[in-house]
Design a protein around this nucleic acid. Structure first.
Lengths: 145, 145
DNA sequence: ATTTTAAATGCAACTGTATTGCTTTTATAT
DNA sequence: ATATAAAAGCAATACAGTTGCATTTAAAAT
C-alpha cells in the first residue's frame, strides 16, 4: 500500500499543481481532521512553516480544483473539508448537509445526509443548495448536561 | 389607516425599545426593500444620519427582539430581513429558504418554501436549519439569458 | 414644566478575516 | 545545468464587526 504522502503528491500532480511543502502539509492536516478547517486554524498549527497568505492561496487553489469544499461557519469564517470522490474542478458534488455544533463550534460534513430537492417560485433557477444544521454534535452531547 | 411611521413606533414600544431616529429610519429602509440588507448598505444610504456602530447595534437589538432575522451571504456578510409575523424575542419562526442570486447578489426570503425535516446521524441534535439556495433570481433571469 | 436616569448614540481605537501588489524562491521542463 | 512559470514570502491594505467610554436624549418621575 502506498503511503499517504505519495497519494497527496499524485493528487497535486493530477490537478496540475506543483508538489510544494505548504500544500502537502495542508493536505496532511486536513486529512487528519474530523471536521472542517479554517485558515486561522492552519496558520496556528503550522506556525512559521507557511505564510498566512500562502495558506489562503493554497486553500483557494484546492477549492478551484475540487480537492476541498468551502463552508461558512456562523461567524462567516470560511472552513474547508476534503471533498468526497467525484468532485473536480468542473463540478462539485458536495451537496450534503453540514452540521455546526453550538458547543465546540466544529463543522461536520454529514456525507450520508443529502439535501432534498426543492420547489422554488417561478423564475428562480437554483444552481446549488447549501444546508447548515446547527445544534449539538455527538461528541458534545454528554457535556451539555 | 394608520401610517407607516406610527406602525413602526408601536413596534418599537411593544418591544421595549425607545423611539429613536436611527431605528425608525432603519425600519423604513428595510420595509422598502425586497431583499435582505446589510449594515454596509444601510451605512451607505444613511450617510451621516447614523454612525456605523449605531447601525450594528440597531440591527442587533432588532434581531434579539425578533423583528428581523439574519442570513449570511456567500462572502459571510450578515444581511437582515424583516421577520414574518409570529417571530418574537423568544422564538424565531424564520426557517424558510433563502435564495442568493449569483448575478445581483441579492438575498431573497422565500417565505413560501419551508425547509424539510432532516434525518441526522445518531447523537447529533439539530436545533436550527439554514438552507441557502444559490442561482439566478427571477429579476435577473432575462439578463443572464 | 423640570429634573432625573437609564438607554441609546457617537466617536476612536481595535480585532480578525481576507485580499492585493510586488519581490524572491523553487519545482519542473528544457 | 539552465530557463521559466508557478508558488511562496512579505508588506500594506480592505472590510466587517466589536469594545470602551464620553455625550446625548427619550421617557419616567417629580
Amino acid at each position: 500500500m502506498e503511503n499517504k504522502t505519495e497519494r497527496f503528491e499524485k493528487l497535486l500532480v493530477k490537478n496540475g499543481l506543483k508538489r510544494t511543502a505548504p500544500r502537502l502539509q495542508v493536505l496532511e492536516i486536513l486529512s487528519g481532521r474530523d471536521s472542517a478547517t479554517s485558515q486561522p486554524y492552519l496558520e496556528q498549527v503550522m506556525g512559521k512553516d507557511a505564510d498566512r497568505v500562502t495558506l489562503y492561496r493554497v486553500l483557494q487553489a484546492f477549492e478551484e480544483k475540487g480537492i476541498i469544499h468551502k463552508v461558512l461557519d456562523q461567524q462567516g469564517t470560511a472552513n474547508y473539508a476534503i471533498c468526497s470522490d467525484g468532485c473536480s474542478a468542473h463540478e462539485h458534488h458536495d451537496e450534503h448537509v453540514h452540521f455546526n455544533c453550538d458547543n465546540c463550534h466544529k463543522i461536520y460534513c454529514l456525507d450520508a445526509v443529502k439535501i432534498p430537492a426543492l420547489k422554488v417560485p417561478a423564475g428562480f433557477k437554483v444552481e446549488h443548495l447549501n444546508l447548515i444544521a446547527t445544534g449539538v454534535c455527538a461528541n458534545c452531547a454528554d457535556k451539555v448536561n
